[in-house]
Amino acid sequence: MRDGTDFVELARIWRGPLVESVHRGTVVVADFEGRLVGSWGDAGLMTFPRSSLKPFQAMALVESGAADAFGLSDEYIAMACASHDAEPFQTGLVGNWLGRLGLTEEALVCGPALPRREDDMATAFAQGGPRRLYHNCSGKHCGFLTVAKHLGAGLDYARPDHPAQKLYLDILSDYLGRDATKLPVGRDGCGLPTLALPMRDLSRAAARLGLGYSGNAARRAAAKRVLGAMTAYPDHLSGLDSPTARIVRATGGRVAVKGGAEGFVMAVVPDRGLGITIKIADGAARAKYGVLARTLGHFGVLPTAEAEALVESVNGQITDSTGAVVGGTEIVFETPVPTSETKATLGFWLGGVKEAFF
């Protein structure tokens, strides 16, 4: 990131009658050739997509034959893409997965963590406290372990030169249309290498993922299976009835969604051949799914009314300690303009919406 000119205003946080905070960011929509279908902010913004890259990592699990070799259903493929809340059904899958590998959770590179939801956290403390199993990336790490075992490589899969990492980078390079090994590398919160890349490039890769774009037949099949798992089991990707799951269900599975840390989210729209990436500049997550829902309406993936209902569904309310609603999130990015005559009130005009009378 360079300066504020990279970003546009995307959302406002209201408390009572006043705007308390503003979220700026970048939205990039591209097709499989990399043509910009829409761009708000700097499409060339170099940033870390973080967990939004997990679908490409999960492709190695399928393409290598490791998933079938260990009898992994699509629920496990979804968990390989997940940044999960460590709900019981999720940790149960991860525990079973490790058992199939003949390993314990100590084989996971990610550190011990706690579940995200209060009831599950209380249960975790009652059963001994933090565990690697609870880490939100434990499914991804099981994926890398599975590829490592299937390839007969060592279990030190965090090494940049490990065969499992090399296969992932080869897949990502194919979909990016550039050599991923030349991209800037940082270290993710789970201990694995993480790449920085231009948002435009990842939007193109997302569009290609939706189309199964590759000269490699096994890779095309892997792309189809990974996306199928993500849309068939959207609760696995984050948590039960999460914004991710709501968007997938609202679109009838026509959109696959994968969030990343620090305000990032990627969406794949196969039937439109589009890839969408969104970055909230300050790293807050609370506005990104509302921005995505608005984007889906802007490009006709959902009818405007359905998209706006989805915006409200995925935007979190601002509450006080008693649970009373005291504010909310307003998505200001591309506010829909009415296309038929309406009775314009003072509030309507002060809200900054222009009537399309002509």
Score class of each variant (00 low, 15 high):
103 L>N: 08
226 V>G: 08
295 T>H: 08
243 P>A: 05
296 L>V: 11
150 H>F: 15
149 K>Q: 15
341 E>D: 07
255 V>T: 04
290 G>R: 12
275 G>V: 08
338 P>E: 06
242 S>E: 07
339 T>F: 00
180 A>G: 03
68 D>N: 08
234 P>F: 04
318 I>K: 08
97 W>I: 08
45 L>A: 07
250 A>D: 09
48 F>W: 14
251 T>G: 04
261 A>D: 10
281 A>F: 01
28 V>H: 07
219 R>P: 01
112 P>C: 10
150 H>W: 13
329 T>S: 12
306 E>P: 02
39 S>P: 00
74 D>A: 02
219 R>D: 06
338 P>V: 11
53 L>H: 02
116 R>M: 13
32 F>S: 15
6 D>M: 08
151 L>F: 13
309 A>M: 14
345 T>P: 10
357 F>G: 02
323 G>R: 09
357 F>D: 02
307 A>V: 12
299 F>T: 11
189 G>P: 04
18 L>G: 03
289 Y>K: 09
115 P>V: 04
243 P>S: 10
353 V>E: 10
83 S>N: 00
319 T>K: 15
201 D>V: 14
105 E>S: 07
216 N>H: 06
254 R>W: 01
210 G>I: 09
325 V>S: 09
61 L>G: 08
115 P>G: 03
233 Y>A: 05
114 L>S: 03
348 F>Q: 02
67 A>Q: 10
349 W>K: 14
306 E>Q: 15
333 F>L: 14
17 P>S: 15
336 P>R: 09
99 G>P: 01
31 D>L: 13
107 A>Y: 03
337 V>Q: 13
198 P>N: 02
298 H>G: 05
209 L>A: 07
143 G>C: 09
89 F>T: 01
132 R>D: 01
129 G>R: 12
245 A>N: 08
153 A>K: 00
140 K>Q: 07
161 D>W: 00
154 G>C: 06
296 L>A: 02
198 P>K: 14
328 G>W: 05
325 V>L: 08
299 F>K: 03
62 V>D: 02
278 I>S: 03
290 G>D: 12
23 H>W: 05
87 E>M: 04
242 S>V: 07
213 Y>Q: 07
252 G>A: 05
94 V>H: 04
156 D>R: 05
242 S>N: 07
102 G>C: 07
168 Y>V: 15
250 A>W: 00
142 C>D: 04
234 P>D: 07
240 L>T: 15
235 D>H: 11
13 I>T: 12
